[in-house]
């Protein structure tokens, strides 16, 4: 059976791992390659590296990091953060990244998704969607959750798949950092309505939250600080899920 995936996310700034609680308060959680190797050993199914560096040196530093990760890590990984051009993606894939994730740039210019899919294949194109619960429903936000795009989350999810996305990384900004659990309703709704895998992100605080989101229909679940600060150790989490009849690799 295809198993559900557990994906630690490493936020990267200037080559170091950081994690913003609700994307603001940032704490240092170590060396990315070392942390990645630890997660791979503990049974992480994939890794996501999200680059939040904002300097001109950004691209070069990121490529070096991707290369080092690919050299030492023998599980798949996705790279995201500020990717807006076919050339950016080419150099990341050439250096060993398996997938890239695009977010704001795809909202700004949806054709980018199609360009990436036809050039490199849908399997390496993950579209990240940041969504917030509003009185009218779940809407898509950009620029780290500050700008309401006017798009409905479900409509945008369907559109990115139509344009060639091979996977959706769905982050609920309403849940992110709360540790009160994933956004089960919108995750389940999108997962049921698209043919590609959906990674749930935002809100994980304990083992039960992962079980809940897999039962709601997520194909994978992503978290950061609870892994970095060992609040929910990976081996125990996977064992818990297996005991609760979730198909999981452990």
């Amino acid at each position: 059976m295809l198993t559900k995936r557990i994906i630690p996310c490493l936020d990267i700034k200037n080559g170091r791992t950081v994690k913003g609680v609700r994307f603001e308060d940032i704490r240092d959680a170590g060396d990315p390659v070392e942390l990645a190797a630890l997660y791979a050993k503990q049974g992480a199914d994939e890794l996501v590296f999200l680059d939040i560096t904002a300097t001109n040196e950004k691209r070069k530093t990121l490529v070096e990091l991707v290369r080092e990760v690919a050299r030492y890590i023998d599980i798949p990984f996705t790279v995201g953060g500020g990717i807006s051009a076919v050339e950016d993606v080419e150099v990341l894939l050439q250096n060993g990244a398996d997938k890239v994730s695009v977010n704001s740039s795809a909202i700004h210019r949806p054709e980018l998704i199609t360009e990436l899919a036809s050039r490199f294949g849908s399997q390496c194109v993950t579209v990240a969607i940041d969504t917030k619960s509003t009185p009218e429903g779940w809407k898509v936000f950009s620029k780290a959750g500050t700008v309401d795009t006017g798009l409905w989350a479900l409509d945008w999810a369907k559109e990115v798949v139509e344009r060639g996305a091979g996977e959706i990384l769905l982050t609920s900004m309403s849940n992110d950092g709360t540790k009160n659990g994933f956004a089960l309703d919108i995750t389940g709704e999108i997962s049921r309505n698209v043919i590609v895998p959906v990674i749930a992100s935002g809100g994980a605080g304990n083992e039960q939250h992962f079980l809940d989101v897999f039962e709601a229909g997520a194909d994978a679940a992503l978290a950061a600080s609870i892994f970095h600060f060992q609040e929910v150790p990976l081996p125990g989490l996977k064992k818990f899920l297996a005991q609760n009849k979730i198909d999981i690799r452990c």
Partner: peptide, 9 residues
Amino acid sequence: KVPHMGWNN
């Protein structure tokens, strides 16, 4: 769901 993506036996 396609792609078939992830770990399988």
